[in-house]
Amino acid sequence: MLHIKCPYCGMRSQNEFAYGGDATVKRPELNKEVSDEEWNKFVYLRKSPRGKHLELWHHISGCRQWFKVQRDTITHEIFKTAEISEDI
């Protein structure tokens, strides 16, 4: 079971969290013309790296904050967690 540091609550076990997927995916701005390609890239395409992965987690059984986690997809080691507004 992963041990994840919520930037707001501290170290907690994985069962308090929900996974939220790739954090590098950026939603195109509202009311902006986007090509099919750009839109589909946002909705469907994922790099799915082997190694460091920047991802979202949601502290659903805690403070209900979304935050960023940098984790290794081979070893599951977590390097860093950060609030959404912070850069990793």
Partner: peptide
């Protein structure tokens, strides 16, 4: 297991 992973090892929960 519910998160991106290339590990062929999972967790007990």
């Amino acid at each position: 297991d519910g998160y991106n992973s290339y590990a062929q090892r999972g967790n007990l929960p």
